[in-house]
Design a binder for these strands. Sequence first.
DNA 1: GCCAACGTTGGC
DNA 2: GCCAACGTTGGC
Length: 147
Amino acid sequence: MADTSPSVSRGLWLIKSEPTVYPWSQLVKDKKTAWTGIRNFTARLNLRAMKKGDLCFFYHSNEGKEMVGVAKVVKTAYADSTAEEGDWSCVDVAAVYPLKSPVTLATVKATKALAKMQLLVQSRLSVSKVTEAEWALIHELSSTKPR
DNA sequence: GCCAACGTTGGC
DNA sequence: GCCAACGTTGGC
C-alpha cells in the first residue's frame, strides 16, 4: 500500500536571505514572493528539484545567522526574469509559520546530529537540502511543532 | 572591514 | 583539461 504520509515524498530545503535585503518579516507581509537572484549552478539544481508543497527553512545570513521560519514552495521553477543573461530559474515561496525561537548557526555547529547539514558542508550555498531528521531536530531545538 | 572558502572564468 | 586569477559569499 502506498504511504500517504507527506513526510515520504516532500522535499525539505533551506533558503538563505540577507535580512537587510529581504527579511522573513517581509515574506510574512508579502505572503509570497518570487525567489529570484540565484546565480549558482548547485543552487539552481536544488531550485529546479523543488516541488509544489515542499518546505523550506528561511535562514538569515550575515545578520542573525539563524533559521527564523518555514516557507512553502507554491510554484515550481520558472525563468528568473531578473537575470540579464544566462539560464536561471526562480520559484515562488510563501510564508507558512515562524520558528518559536530561531535556531542559530552556532547551535547548528554545536549540535552533533546537524554536523552534516548541507548548510555547514557547503557554507556558501544559498539553496540547500535538509533531511527529515534535520528538519525534525531543528523544530525541536526551536520549540516549534512541525506542520 | 577582513579574509577564508568556494565558484567561475579564461589562458595555455 | 589544468590551474591561476578573479569575484563573491558569508562568518567572524
